[in-house]
Structures are given as C-alpha cells and as structure tokens.
Amino acid sequence: MLEVQNLTKKIDGKTIVKDISFSLHEGEILGFVGPNGAGKTTTLRMLACCTLPSSGTATLDGSDLIKNGMAVRRNIGYLPEVPPLYEYMKVITYLKTIARLKGIPKNSVAEAVDEVIEKCFIHKMAVREIGKLSKGYRQRVGLAQAILGKPRLLLLDEPTSGLDPGQISEMREIIRTAATKSMVIFSTHILQEIQNLCHRIVLIKNGALQYQGRLDQYGLADDGITHLALRLQGETEIIEGVLSNPDHHTTFRLEKNSNVPADIKATVQFPENPDTQTAILKELLNNNIRVLEVSPLAKDLEQTILDFMRSE
C-alpha cells in the first residue's frame, strides 16, 4: 500500500506541490490529471525518489520514502515523460543493464528481461539499437524497463503521449497487465485513458489536490437530471411536439441520419423521474413513432474535466 501524506515541494521559494495526500491499494490504477504545470510530474518524481519533498512524506508498504530511500527504490518502476534510454545500446543489453542496476539477482536477469520483452511486445526489436527505434517502440522499451523486476509501485508519466491509436491500445493492455501485480499511478492529458484505465483519479491544479475518488463521481454528483439517447423513426414534427410537451420539462436535440432520413437521433434531458421517462416513451409510441433504441447517456465527462482544467 502507498500512503502519501502532506507531500509538499518548494523550488526556489515557490511552492510547486502543496500538501498532497492520497493512498493507493494493491491492484489499483490511479490517474493523475491536471493542466500543464499543475505539479503532476513533480509529485511523480518525488514518489520515484528522484527529488526529495520539502515536507510531508510517503510510505510504500511501510517503508518511508525519505528515511528508507534505498528500500523504496527497489520496489519502484518509473517511466518519465521522455523514456530514459541509452541510445547506443541494443534493447536487450539496455534491459539487462537496468535489471542489474535494479538489483535483480544475476541468475534471474535473463528470465526477467525475457518476461518484459514478451509483455511489451518488443521481441522483434530485442537486438536492435535503441537509437534506431520508432517512437512507439522507444516508449515500449521505456515501459519494459519500468516493469522489470515486478515493482510494487509503477509510476508512469504520460506513457501514451504521441502514440498512434494501435500503440495506445497495446500500451493500455500492458499497463492493465502490470497492474495485476503492482499499484500504478499514471499521469495523462488524454481523458480516454483515464476512462479506460483508472480505478480512481486525483485531480491536481496549481500544485494542490482538488479531488480524489472515483472518476464517475467527479463533479457529476447527481445533478438530478436524466440523460437519454434515443433512436427514433417517424415524423420530425411529431417527435418535436412530444419532446417539447411542457409537462415533461425536457430539453432535447435532434439529429437526422444523413443515410436514412427517417432515422432520427434524439438527445434528451429531463428531471430525474422514472414516470417522466415512461410517459415520454408512451407518448412517442402512441404517436406512431418507432423507438428503435433507448440508452442512458453518459454525462459529458470530457467537458466536466476540461471545465475543471480551465477554471481558475
């Protein structure tokens, strides 16, 4: 378990990170979210023992980050934003070097390296010089070094930035697999990543923690509004008439399917009340409107997070 308490970092008298506290349990993936300069990287660097906190502390499985730095370092895997690679080495030589530096026993180095090569899908590049690899492969090699030795805590700083969709998907899979044996903290700007990977998020801004908890609970704490996406077939005027019925207190938006003109997508919001939903659907059917699909609409998380990042 990782426990972070009142972690603060001041550089040249300026507070970069201010009293951040959170905890992380086995098997959890924690997303670090915040605008540029929020203090995400500095927090990760402190947790990776790359820089000391000005005050506060963190313990990993009971070992204090400051008092017991060497023990903590043995249990950390860290991938900075720019993968730290020795360009002149072959992938396999690099990973063996890192394995030895991490203190993996001599007789287990080859096995540990083979394992991460397989996990990160870099077997075809194992004997290639790192300097000649594409960005995607360099990122994978960076991740491979981070997960070498199955660290208890994996710290990933924007691990998917600059990758193409296929590479992002592979990277996600690698992180998910790694999280079965480690606690993972990763920072990202890509909101899809947060939705796809994280169990919890920490929102950080101006160096201070703004929110920590489940992603689906952030800022969406029930606003008492039901959001529905409907696929309908019928006369637009009739649909508009039903949805604009003042009894239902709805707001709605209609979009026509350009390929099938009769097919209409309606996004509807109305006060949370099961009776209203039933009443709307009944009225549509009574007016000979075919209801092809009804699905609850996820609230606009992206917009919510963006609003958070932009807000003062």
């Binding site: 660097r45 990776a48 023992c49 790359c50 820089t51 060497m70 370092r73 043995r74 950390i76 860290y78 900075p80 720019v82 993968p83 730290p84 690679l85 020795y86 360009e87 890192i98 530096l101 991490k102 203190g103 070094q145």
Partner: peptide, 14 residues
Amino acid sequence: NSGTLELLFSMPVS
C-alpha cells in the same frame, strides 16, 4: 541530457 540520470536516481544506486 538524455534523462537517464533521473532513471538512475530512481534505482537502488547510491
């Protein structure tokens, strides 16, 4: 320059 010093700092190397 290459950022590998950060990596070495995060490892059990004095």
